[in-house]
Simulated assay, not measured.
Amino acid sequence: MTEFKLDAIDRKILEILQADAGTPNIELAERVALSPSPCSRRVKNLEDQGYISRRVTLLDPGKVGLPVSVFIQVTLNHQIKKQLEGFEREIAKWPEVMECYLMAGDVDYLIRLVVPDLHAYQEFLDQKLTQLEGIDHIKSSFSLKQVRYKTEFPLDHLAPD
Score class of each variant (00 low, 15 high):
residue 1 M to R: 11
residue 1 M to Q: 10
residue 2 T to I: 05
residue 5 K to D: 02
residue 6 L to H: 08
residue 6 L to D: 08
residue 7 D to F: 03
residue 10 D to W: 04
residue 12 K to P: 00
residue 12 K to E: 15
residue 14 L to C: 04
residue 15 E to Y: 00
residue 17 L to P: 05
residue 18 Q to D: 03
residue 21 A to P: 11
residue 22 G to S: 10
residue 24 P to E: 13
residue 25 N to V: 14
residue 27 E to V: 15
residue 27 E to P: 00
residue 28 L to G: 06
residue 28 L to R: 05
residue 28 L to C: 06
residue 29 A to C: 10
residue 30 E to H: 13
residue 31 R to A: 11
residue 32 V to H: 09
residue 34 L to R: 12
residue 37 S to P: 04
residue 42 R to K: 15
residue 42 R to E: 08
residue 43 V to A: 04
residue 46 L to M: 08
residue 47 E to I: 15
residue 48 D to Q: 14
residue 51 Y to G: 05
residue 51 Y to I: 07
residue 53 S to D: 02
residue 53 S to I: 13
residue 54 R to H: 12
residue 55 R to L: 11
residue 56 V to T: 12
residue 59 L to V: 11
residue 59 L to N: 06
residue 59 L to C: 04
residue 61 P to H: 04
residue 62 G to T: 09
residue 62 G to S: 12
residue 63 K to P: 01
residue 66 L to R: 14
residue 68 V to Y: 05
residue 69 S to Q: 12
residue 69 S to M: 10
residue 69 S to E: 11
residue 70 V to N: 00
residue 73 Q to A: 13
residue 73 Q to H: 11
residue 74 V to E: 01
residue 75 T to Y: 01
residue 75 T to P: 01
residue 76 L to E: 04
residue 76 L to C: 08
residue 77 N to L: 05
residue 77 N to E: 14
residue 78 H to F: 13
residue 79 Q to C: 04
residue 82 K to V: 10
residue 83 Q to W: 02
residue 85 E to M: 10
residue 88 E to K: 12
residue 88 E to R: 09
residue 92 A to I: 01
residue 94 W to N: 01
residue 98 M to E: 14
residue 98 M to Q: 14
residue 98 M to S: 11
residue 98 M to G: 13
residue 100 C to N: 11
residue 100 C to E: 01
residue 101 Y to D: 08
residue 102 L to V: 12
residue 102 L to G: 03
residue 104 A to E: 09
residue 107 V to Q: 11
residue 108 D to Y: 06
residue 108 D to Q: 07
residue 109 Y to I: 05
residue 111 I to R: 02
residue 112 R to V: 08
residue 113 L to M: 07
residue 115 V to Q: 07
residue 119 H to Y: 07
residue 120 A to K: 12
residue 120 A to R: 13
residue 123 E to H: 09
residue 124 F to I: 10
residue 126 D to C: 01
residue 126 D to K: 10
residue 127 Q to M: 09
residue 128 K to H: 13
residue 128 K to S: 13
residue 130 T to A: 04
residue 130 T to G: 00
residue 133 E to I: 01
residue 134 G to W: 07
residue 135 I to M: 06
residue 138 I to T: 08
residue 140 S to Q: 09
residue 143 S to N: 09
residue 145 K to R: 15
residue 146 Q to T: 15
residue 150 K to L: 06
residue 151 T to F: 07
residue 152 E to D: 11
residue 155 L to V: 06
residue 156 D to R: 12
residue 157 H to A: 12
residue 158 L to E: 10
residue 159 A to I: 07
residue 159 A to G: 01
residue 159 A to C: 00
residue 160 P to I: 04
residue 160 P to F: 03
residue 161 D to E: 15
residue 161 D to L: 12
